[in-house]
C-alpha cells in the first residue's frame, strides 16, 4: 500500500501541496487528474525524493517503508519508479549502458547478483521488441535528440527492465500519437498485478482508455478535492474541472 497522509510540499518557500491525502492499495490503479499547475508533477518528485523540495507528512510510505528515510536511489531499489513528464537527456551515456547500470545498481541494493552482459542484453532486446524500439536507438545517448514519443517509449522500456512495484506515470500520454499511446498503455496495463500499485498522473483521460483506473482523484489547489471511480474521468473530460469540482 502507498500511504500519503497530510503531505505538504514547498519549493523556494512556495507551498505547492497543502495537506494531501492518498492511499493506493496493492493491486490497484489510481489516476490523479487536475489542471495545469495543480501540483501533479510535484507529487511525483516528492515521492521520488528530488532535492529542493521541502516536505512534511504524517506518513509517506510504500509497502511498510518510510520513503522519507530513503535516498532517491534507495526508493528505486524498493520498487518505486517515477516516469517523468519530461524525461532527461543524458549526453555521452548510451541508453543500454544507462539501463544496465540502473538495473545492476538496484540488484546490488537488494542483495541480488548483477546480471551478466549477455543476460542483460537478452532481456533488453526482448523488452525493446515489445515496445518496437529499434536496436540502433539503444546505442544512442539516452534521450538525446529523441522525439517526445521516443522518450516515453524509453521510459516504458525502463519499467519493463527494472520491474518496479510502485509505478508513478507523470503525463506519460503527452507527446504520444495514437499508436504509441495504445502500445505503451497496453504494455503497462499488462504489468498490473496483485503486488503492484500504479499511480497514473494525467491531464487528459486518453491513457485511461488503456489503463482503466480503480479510482480517480482530482488534485487542485494542492489537495485532493474529489475522488470517484473511472466514470469521474469521463465527467472531467465532458464538463471540465471547474464544474465537476463545484458539483462534488
Amino acid at each position: 500500500m502507498l500511504t500519503i497522509s497530510n503531505l505538504t510540499v514547498s519549493v523556494d518557500d512556495k507551498a505547492i501541496l497543502k495537506g494531501l491525502n492518498l492511499s493506493v492499495p496493492k493491486g490497484e490503479v489510481h489516476a490523479i487528474m487536475g489542471p495545469n499547475g495543480a501540483g501533479k508533477s510535484t507529487l511525483g518528485y516528492a515521492l521520488a525524493g528530488r532535492d529542493g523540495y521541502t516536505i512534511s507528512a504524517d506518513q509517506l510510505s510504500w509497502d511498510g517503508d518510510d520513503l522519507q528515510e530513503l535516498e532517491p536511489h534507495e526508493r528505486a531499489a524498493k520498487g518505486l519508479f517515477l516516469s517523468l513528464q519530461y524525461p532527461v537527456e543524458i549526453p555521452g551515456v548510451a541508453a543500454l549502458t544507462f539501463l544496465r547500470t540502473s538495473v545492476n545498481a538496484q540488484r546490488r541494493a537488494r542483495g541480488q547478483e548483477e546480471l551478466s552482459a549477455p543476460e542483460f542484453m537478452k532481456r533488453a532486446r526482448e523488452a525493446a521488441g515489445t515496445l518496437k524500439i529499434p536496436d540502433e536507438m539503444l546505442k544512442r545517448p539516452l534521450n538525446v535528440g529523441f522525439s517526445g514519443g521516443e522518450k516515453k517509449r524509453m521510459e516504458a522500456l525502463q519499467i519493463l527492465l527494472l520491474q518496479p512495484t510502485l509505478i508513478v506515470l507523470d503525463e506519460t500520454d503527452s507527446g504520444l500519437d495514437i499508436d504509441a499511446l495504445k502500445l505503451i498503455g497496453e504494455t503497462i496495463n499488462g504489468l498490473r498485478g496483485p503486488d503492484k500499485a500504479l499511480v497514473v498522473i494525467t491531464h487528459y483521460p486518453r491513457l485511461l482508455d488503456y489503463i482503466r483506473p480503480d479510482r480517480v482523484h482530482v488534485l487542485q489547489g494542492g489537495q485532493i478535492v474529489t475522488s470517484g471511480d473511472a466514470k469521474l474521468a469521463l465527467a472531467l473530460e465532458a464538463d471540465g474541472y471547474d464544474s465537476v469540482v463545484a458539483n462534488a
Binding site: 525524493g49 528530488r50 535516498e71 536511489h73 517523468l84 532527461v88 543524458i90 547500470t101 540502473s102 525502463q158
Partner: peptide, 8 residues
C-alpha cells in the same frame, strides 16, 4: 536526479 531515480 534522473539517474538516482533509476536506482544509481
Amino acid at each position: 536526479f534522473y539517474a538516482q531515480a533509476r536506482g544509481i
